[in-house]
Amino acid sequence: MSNPTLVAQTRSEFGKGAARRARRAGLVPGVLYGHGGDPVHVDLPAHELFLAVRGQKNALLELVIEGKKQLALVKEVQRHPVSRDLLHADFLAVKAGEVVDVEVPVSIIGESAAGTQHTQEEFALLVKAPATAIPESIEVDITGIEAGTAVRVADVTFPEGVVSELDPETVVVTVSEEVVEVEEEEAPAEAAEESAE
């Protein structure tokens, strides 16, 4: 699947006033950094950027800056707390064969053994992954796991080329006996009346 391509304009004006003007013009201020170079300040088309990052963590884009193409990993997006409009974006410049540090969401699949319940302890794992092959999620299969079991980082099967530098003993999911809430029976109405006398 090809990465979304956005044409970015280099920005020479800074500050809140310049940012407001950019947003009024349908642009989102951003900064591209990495590879030891000076940060490059850019303005990007708001709608195209919104579509590119919607529902995605670690989105990889191709930015066209002054005619040159640059792969860029979205590191952070700031949104308006009410309207959810994009306010600012930070990008990390990457190369096709480069390995990057990213947080990838954990996805629990399967059902643990009958009469058990699971508790997710880690919702994302810090991993090293190829910039062009960052997984959308890391699946942790709990099918048939019995109560009293902890699934640790060492037990997780990572996609090819993806490794975690977390402590292998870090617990990702625990499985315990299902807690059944017993509803207390209501006392008979007569008993309630007697106690009221």
Results as ranks from 00 to 15, higher is better:
L125V: 11
I142T: 01
G161W: 04
G148H: 05
E121K: 15
A133G: 09
L126A: 14
E146S: 10
V153F: 03
T174H: 03
G148I: 04
E122W: 00
T132K: 12
E181A: 15
V153K: 04
E165K: 11
T174S: 10
A114S: 13
V179N: 03
P168A: 11
V182T: 12
I142M: 04
G148C: 03
V182R: 08
V182F: 07
V179W: 00
E169C: 09
E183P: 05
L166E: 13
A147H: 01
V179F: 10
R152G: 01
L126I: 07
T132Q: 13
A129L: 05
P168F: 08
A114V: 13
Q120S: 08
F158Y: 06
P168Q: 09
V151H: 01
P159V: 04
V173M: 07
T157E: 14
D141R: 05
T143Y: 05
V171W: 05
P159N: 06
E177I: 03
V182K: 10
T157F: 00
A131G: 12
L126S: 14
E121T: 12
F123W: 11
T149P: 02
A113P: 00
D141Y: 02
D155M: 02
G161N: 04
V156M: 02
E178L: 15
R152Q: 10
F123K: 13
A154S: 10
F158A: 05
S137A: 15
A147G: 01
V182W: 03
P130S: 09
E178P: 00
P130L: 08
I134P: 04
G148S: 08
V182L: 10
A129Q: 03
I142C: 03
G161S: 09
V175Q: 01
V127Y: 00
E169G: 12
L126E: 14
E146P: 00
V171P: 06
T116S: 13
E165S: 11
V127M: 07
S164W: 00
S112C: 14
V171Y: 03
V162T: 09
E139Q: 15
D167A: 14
T157D: 11
P168D: 06
L126M: 12
T132M: 14
K128R: 15
L166I: 09
P130T: 09
A124W: 06
T174Q: 07
L125I: 12
E178K: 15
P168C: 10
A114R: 14
L125A: 10
P159M: 03
T149Q: 06
V179A: 12
A131M: 07
G115D: 08
A154V: 05
S112M: 11
D155F: 04
T116V: 13
E183N: 09
A150S: 15
V153Y: 00
V180P: 03
E183G: 12
L126F: 07
S137E: 12
I145N: 04
G148Y: 06
T157Y: 00
G115T: 11
S164N: 08
Q117I: 15
S176N: 08
T116R: 13
V163W: 00
V175N: 01
P130A: 08
F123M: 11
F158N: 01
G148D: 07
V173C: 09
R152N: 07
P135H: 09
V171A: 08
